[in-house]
Design a protein around this nucleic acid. Structure first.
Length: 509
DNA sequence: AAAAAAT
């Protein structure tokens, strides 16, 4: 148990010279991938790492995996309407000399028959996505090392950690063995639903640990202890259950942080997350920690690499390759609030359901309420979600949207991350996401997460960024520069043709 | 003071 923690705890076989090859991640040899490029071991973290991590980065091997788009198209693309989200590089850094082989099929992963059945029958998956192919062997191969994994929005990260949790449960132990912490109630519920679907045939028990009925007076202290084998929830509730001894962590094998960059940011849930992690670590030093997100800015990246166990694996994507090609981004100049509302009304809502579903992001609850009232007063059916609503209302609004009963959802950043609704083709940034402390700076991570609500799993999508002020103009320029994109301008907010042309170009009309 | 979580 304790021997799995130290850097020296690598498996007995430690042939220094074999390190490069033994660490390798082998691409599935299925296709004639002549265009595949591999680069080995020469580039350690391109970030400047002071002395403290020198020893750990020495024994890491970096590999850049690139699959040429054409090679994929030629070979196995079945659905030509889906852009392949896999065709960008993921940078893998493995540690120690554990060999990993990329999983070409789910069968390669030694999953239980019940779990495989869940993947094929319930989830209707055929083969692992790129992040799944690379990360799952790292997650599932003993010795169980911590993993920091970045992958594109909608590329299937949830499946990675859900499979990780499900496949490590001892069915005979009827106590919590896997814990997943999420930033919002909605994401916790969504992840639990995925886990229950995927694990349908496994008999594994699971439970959500999120704040309960807000409607009544807080009698929530009478919550019973948790015996479920997998627990997914929000930090405050998890922390409370732990301190009340209603959530046993003695058997914990896997600890997952979804949206890990936010969970471990100091303006996020750093304190709660660290507390939970430390408590579990203290009782259970071998517990595997998995950190997943589409974004890790340099600060967080540096921080998280220090808090996981020394001998960890990591997968990262360059920020210039993080934007989804399948989601076309636009900016629209609107001189004032009224024109923003008119543009939504005349250019978007009037098109009706042909666009699929739409999410309109705003920066504040007040802005959400204002826009909601304006559109409802104009006679349109929109729903709105933000953190000031009751839990019941939030659940209801999300459910209606997921069931397709509502087409247009106004939201604060409560749904910016992780929310997965495949029918969302259009995202509107009614307000541009900015950093709170420095409102002239874009919030790059929030921007990327918001636009990632469209284009799930390679689907086509469009984003309209409403630009009202000079400051907004600058923010869009900074976003372009940061992500290496060139967000096109819709010439006139008042032109039906302009919008239709944009939507057509995005593949939505 | 913000989004969110929770006290």
């Amino acid at each position: 148990m304790a021997d799995a923690t130290g850097p020296s705890a690598a498996p007995a076989t430690s042939a220094e010279t074999e390190k490069k090859t033994s660490v390798g991640i082998v691409e599935p040899e299925s296709k004639p991938q002549t265009a595949e490029i591999k680069r080995w071991g020469d580039m350690v973290d391109d970030e400047e790492q002071p002395g403290d991590t020198a020893s750990s980065s020495d024994d890491k091997v970096v590999e850049e995996l690139k699959v040429d788009k054409l090679a994929i198209d030629d070979s196995k693309k079945i659905n030509k309407f889906l852009d392949d989200p896999e065709d960008s590089s993921i940078q893998a850094v493995t540690s120690g000399d554990t060999p990993y082989t990329s999983a070409a099929t789910f069968e390669d992963l030694n999953l239980s028959p019940e779990l495989l059945k869940g993947l094929y029958v319930e989830m209707k998956f055929q083969k692992p996505s790129k992040i799944q192919a690379i990360s799952l062997p790292m997650i599932l191969t003993p010795p169980y090392k911590d993993l920091i994994a970045q992958a594109h929005n909608g590329s299937g990260k949830t499946t990675c950690f859900v499979l990780g949790m499900l496949s490590r449960i001892n069915p005979n132990v009827k106590r919590p063995q896997a814990l997943c912490i999420c930033p919002t109630r909605e994401l916790s519920i969504q992840n639990l639903e995925v886990l229950q679907k995927m694990g349908k045939y496994t008999g594994i028990s699971s439970e959500c640990a999120v704040p309960m009925d807000s409607g009544n007076n807080d009698r929530s202290r009478s919550r019973p202890p948790i015996f479920a084998q997998v627990v997914i929830g929000t930090p405050g509730t998890i922390k409370r259950l732990m301190s009340q001894k209603k959530l046993s962590i003695i058997d914990m094998q896997v600890l997952v942080f979804d949206e890990a960059d936010h969970m471990l940011a100091k303006d996020g849930f750093q304190d709660d997350s660290l507390r939970i992690m430390k408590d579990i670590e203290r009782l259970n030093a071998q517990c595997q920690v998995l950190l997943f997100s589409a974004t890790f800015d340099e600060t967080v990246k540096n921080f998280v690499s220090r808090i996981v166990r020394k001998d960890y694996n990591q997968l990262f994507v360059k920020k210039e390759e993080l934007s989804l090609d399948s989601v076309k981004q636009y900016k629209v100049y609107c001189p004032n609030e009224v024109t923003k509302i008119t543009a939504i009304k005349d250019r978007i809502l009037e098109l009706g359901e042909s666009l699929g579903q739409t999410i309109i992001f705003v920066n504040t609850k007040r802005s959400a309420g204002m826009l909601h009232k304006a559109l409802v007063d104009l006679g349109y059916e929109v729903t709105t979600i933000h953190g000031a609503l009751t839990h019941e209302d939030r659940d209801k609004i999300v459910k209606e949207f997921k069931d397709g009963l509502t087409q247009v959802l106004i939201s604060t950043d409560v749904l910016a991350r992780g929310f997965d609704q495949q029918q969302v083709n259009l995202v509107i940034n009614y307000d541009l996401p900015v950093k709170y402390e420095t409102p002239s700076e874009p919030h790059y991570e929030v921007y990327l997460h918001r636009i990632g609500r469209a284009g799930r799993f390679g689907r086509k999508g469009a984003v309209f960024n409403f630009v009202m002020t000079d400051r907004d103009m600058m923010i869009m320029e900074k976003i372009d520069k940061y992500f290496g994109t060139k967000v096109k301008e819709v010439p006139s907010w008042n032109s039906e043709e302009d919008f239709k042309a944009a939507l057509k170009e995005a593949g939505l009309l």
